[in-house]
Nucleic acid binder design. Structure first.
Lengths: 351, 351
DNA sequence: ATGAAAGCGCTAACAG
DNA sequence: CTGTTAGCGCTTTCAT
């Protein structure tokens, strides 16, 4: 038989101790409560002494405001996501929300985990995973929990999302590669079923066509991992017509491709082959990679997300549609002949 | 004025719909409830149709079992932690717990965040951060929330922790470096105020002394980051007596040091300098690093942690003291002359 | 095996 | 400004 944990001090105990009613004590903990400032101070002081803290569960039950935000996450091994998770969680904490985390890794159990999450009545659910089963989306809708996709543009559904402008970023990258003198371009793709992959690919191909270039070769890696990038580049570069510039769907892929080009083919980067990625993860700036990439505006994206969460908590209806924030081209050694092996400390820009 | 979210269907609604009492319906959702199997099926079926799901907040209030586990996290930019967080969260989800995440990054706000977490009455708190203010520990104790340190051995406090056997691992690494022929060893340290750093350093120095070697040089990086490792190695290698082997307090430091040695001093690894790390993050196996390191037994550590959480939820008292699990030496190209640039796919072992 | 009733700790009208 | 009174949705005695 599970023995219960020791009951903590409740508002009743505190009220009795202070000789006040529970209502008065409760009011001391609300910014809006009509209570004499002196009384509030007394209450707060004694609460501190006794270690009293309002029970968030009880409060959530009544107010229907749990201050819980669910975050659904996959692919944490891609360094882009830890960065996002950190910033996002920080920002939400700052705004007084608590993050409940669901890892969607062994995709079988996601459903159960999401159900468990929803049983805590989160005020918002933020999906960081590149993919999410549509029935999970349905579950949220059924539960009346607003859903926000982060770095993923949902297909036709009337959901709400904040993403980097992938197509524009990829187009800017095409411009940059062409300006660097490349004519034979190639695209190395990641998971084909993700919006990031699709949008970056489309933006890139389209701009290549606009430049009057032949259609870029495509190397499908199938996943957003170093190993997949390495292997896909290996296949691509072993082919007959070696490209002059390779744009990869994200940085991890690009770093894998970069190493494959160097180690398996002895290519000089960028003289023999220019390489670029997308995301601007911390590793991209490391000297041994020094990777040209498209910087995602994480702080801005996080700000948008937390703003929506806060406003929803204040009663505003969640927005619809996908907000696309512009990224920034960061030129480094993998596309800039002059500075092949010299680390770039700061960011350049061009939207 | 905050408008409330639409109320979801409650147990009362379901009971009315089924013509039963709420008590009966409630019993259908407990494994222990004394209820006719037929009745239970009826209830469960109708619940599914209506989308009813018990409110975890209400349940938690009564049972005092919230099924919430708080996870305090810092340093998510070190790839070791995303890996841990993923596995740990998965395992907890599997066991029916929900993870509430607290990021201890802007260290000022940790206290507030932890307080917020505690207000949800988590059944356990797991600290993944290398450091945590002692008043945070006190807050947990005051709240009666058992505390578990993961990858961090708390100082004198009577807390409970699961860690890799850092000292033994570092000693094994010293043995390996000595066996590889090195005589002048060096240690590159990270954050000095962490138990991981202290234990790895102590284990290493002690074993060096046991081998009758001169005391290793020490290069303080001050932080567990690539940049810090790069800079510290740069300082160390610019000195008069260049070491033959460098053991770094973790992999990220080692990778930074590795690049500094190569790029700033043109050293061949491992001929001119052997380098080793600790953790065995995914990146360590990448061909361009191919780093010898000490593999941490994350799955085993996670299993221990979730086991304790589950047992505490079942009423068992949380254990005391620090459990140390053995790591595994993984020899790769940075210490093995013969195979300098050839990736090692699998793990070797030696406890 | 089921139902009625009493709360869990807190907030939110409403009086005073 | 403060106290009284109802509950929030659920579990859990205690009867039946």
């Amino acid at each position: 038989m599970p023995s219960r944990p020791p009951p903590r001090i409740t508002i009743k105990d505190l009220a009795r101790d202070l000789g006040m009613s529970v209502a008065t004590v409760a009011r001391a903990f609300h910014s809006g409560g009509t209570i004499a400032e002196a009384t509030r101070q007394t209450v707060l002081k004694r609460a501190g002494e006794l270690g009293y803290q309002p029970n968030a569960l009880a409060r959530g039950m009544i107010t229907r405001r749990t201050r819980i935000v669910g975050v659904v996450l996959a692919d944490l091994e891609n360094p882009f996501y830890p960065q996002v998770l950190t910033r996002l969680t920080e920002a939400l904490q700052e705004a007084g929300f608590n993050v409940m985390l669901v890892v969607a890794e062994p995709s079988g159990s996601v459903d159960a985990a999401l159900r468990l999450l929803l049983s805590y009545r989160p005020e918002y659910a933020i999906v960081l995973a590149t993919t999410l089963a549509t029935d999970a989306v349905a579950a949220c809708r059924a539960a009346g929990t607003p859903l926000l996709f982060f770095n993923r543009a949902p297909a036709g559904e009337e959901a709400c999302a904040v993403v980097c402008d992938n197509a524009a970023g990829a187009a800017a990258m095409a411009d940059h590669l062409v300006a660097s003198g490349a004519r034979r371009l190639a695209f190395l793709s990641g998971r084909p079923d993700t919006s990031t992959n699709a949008e970056r690919r489309a933006g890139f191909l389209e701009r290549c066509a606009a430049h009057g270039l032949p259609s870029p070769q495509e190397a499908p890696a199938g996943a957003f991992t170093y190993a997949a990038g390495y292997a896909a580049a290996q296949r691509l570069l072993a082919g007959p017509e070696r490209p002059e510039a390779l744009f990869c769907a994200n940085d991890i892929l690009a770093i894998g491709a970069l190493q494959a080009a160097r180690r398996e083919f002895g290519l000089r980067i960028p003289q023999d082959l220019a390489i670029a990625g997308f995301d601007d993860i911390a590793m991209a700036a490391w000297p041994e990679h020094d990777l040209t990439t498209l910087h995602q505006p994480i702080p801005a994206m996080v700000e948008v997300a937390t703003g929506w969460v806060s406003r929803a908590a204040a009663g505003e209806a969640p927005p619809r549609g996908t907000l696309r924030l512009p990224g920034t081209l960061v030129v480094r050694g993998t596309t800039r002949p002059g500075a092949a092996s010299c680390p770039t400390p700061a960011l350049e820009n061009q939207a």
